[in-house]
Design a protein around this nucleic acid. Sequence first.
DNA 1: CCCATATTGTTTGATTGTCAAGATACACTA
DNA 2: TAGTGTATCTTGACAATCAAACAATATGGG
Lengths: 142, 142
Amino acid sequence: MSGQVNDISRLSHQLVEFYEKISSWEQDVVKSSGLSTAQMHAIEIVGHGVSLRMKELAGKMGVTTGTLTVMVDRLEEQGLLKRTPHATDRRSWLVELTAAGGKLFDQHHQYHLRLTEEITAPLSSHEQEMFTVLLEKIVSQM
Amino acid sequence: MSGQVNDISRLSHQLVEFYEKISSWEQDVVKSSGLSTAQMHAIEIVGHGVSLRMKELAGKMGVTTGTLTVMVDRLEEQGLLKRTPHATDRRSWLVELTAAGGKLFDQHHQYHLRLTEEITAPLSSHEQEMFTVLLEKIVSQM
DNA sequence: CCCATATTGTTTGATTGTCAAGATACACTA
DNA sequence: TAGTGTATCTTGACAATCAAACAATATGGG
């Protein structure tokens, strides 16, 4: 037998490398846009779907609402995000992208697509399909 | 044809999800150790190989040397890292793990192995092997 | 060897990120 | 509907971060 333990260790190492490389790629790309990675992360999450409460956004980002308050303040000053009062809960704000924020989000999304293309360049189309399927299986279980 | 563009878009989405989930897992694990994610990142990098210069470590972390100076100060105070003079370049320090730092690194490495096991649980051993091979192909090209 | 330029790490001042505690609004029970 | 506990966001104090200035050392050309 080839050893379960070594297989796991080998894969773990690849995952760390993979994660590191994506991180540094993201950092480089974001830096050129003038935002911090945390700020861009907020843009990415808000841009992905419907408007969110501060609390929900904070939860998705893994920070406290206190942290998010000042972050949204700054992104609002930069005209990328805006707060809208919640329809029925007067404690809450809904956070949304402005037009400028949406434009930035789209641009960043394009960067993601381009990175994905580069990443999968060394794979045949069959391999690429397999990789996607396996990744979907993994992600849906996490 | 099924559409190259949609395939890329689909994979890109999975990659983002995957990255997000690993990030939040890492955050949770690190938080329980009392360090910040940045600090643990330093431990991980230093623990992975030979000793590094401040500049090199800062580069790998995507942070300025000024930031690293205070970070290493704190980790040195906590007894996890130590500075050693460079053998031939008296401007430089080499950063290494202490025994306690090594122990922390080992523990964190075990967490990584456990996460890798959990992640690949829904995969057959053949699928797991394939995933590893594809990931190696990708990582080696990044 | 000497000088000019480059590199490495630290320090400083300003900005940004972070959390704990506070202030306001909601929800539920009686 | 009053009271009590819970939820949501902001505030204030502190830590992390960066860019730029600095000190010490290295490097290379005359």
